[in-house]
Design a protein around this nucleic acid. Sequence first.
DNA 1: CGCCCATCCTGAGCGC
DNA 2: TGCGCTCAGGATGGGC
Length: 273
Amino acid sequence: MPELPEVESVKNGLNKLISGKAITNVDVLWINIIKDPSISEFKERIAGQVIEAVKRRGKFLLFFLTDDVLISHLRMEGKYRLENTDVPRTKHTHVVFELDSGEELRYLDVRKFGKMSLIAKEKWTQHPSMLKLGPEPTNEELKIKHLVNALKKTERPIKACLLDQTIVAGVGNIYADEILYDACIHPERKGKSLQLDEIKDLRNSIITIINKAVDKGGTTIRTYSNAFGTEGGYQTYLSVYGKKDEKCSRCQHTIKKIKVAQRGTHYCPYCQK
DNA sequence: CGCCCATCCTGAGCGC
DNA sequence: TGCGCTCAGGATGGGC
């Protein structure tokens, strides 16, 4: 399940593989992947454009083309693969970008949850998906004051707040659990119950955990791999995610799994207050 | 406005 | 062996 660190790794791989190549044609094999514009406009506009660079905002991949930006979200299991045209397309290949190099950039997605949008370059920051995004989880962009404001009035559990992309962009279910463990905060604590020093700890944990995961090339739990097909390396650093019934490495108590905001949530009932 | 919940999807894992 | 059920979950939009 690609979160910010995994998308960052995919972005880096794609830049090496496809920057400077032109798209000659687009095949859409599962129409629900394309959110907007219409399928015909999507295909017609992309054909002929050059992929200048691939960037990232939150969990969204941004393909900067000659005139447009292709906004792509991998959701649960989306992947990009560069293949020669003679390699057979698998049944999970849903969108194919044919390149002037004779290769194909293929979008694969077992669950078909991923989405793509195309928008004019000068308007991409105004796309609804972009407008809703909060700050990137970096020391420069994620301000204490912003977190204080976002949390001070809400009754929602802090886990739900971390998953809310308007509060901070890029955190998903795995890193939310890891961040709360690192900050020693119970996932069911109401947002407004957090004290200032706890919010500072939380901010530090968000930045530290995400940075380290980026550094390790992301986490491979189920099926994630980057554009080169290589797996991430952060899974060996996980403290609670997927560790139900195992011992907490800090206090030796047993890691529990509960549901918070409809999401599987792992935590240590002794360390996380 | 804030928040909850269903929806989209398929494959893995499990019990019988 | 194979069937049917449950679970996994990010963003979105409807509804209260």
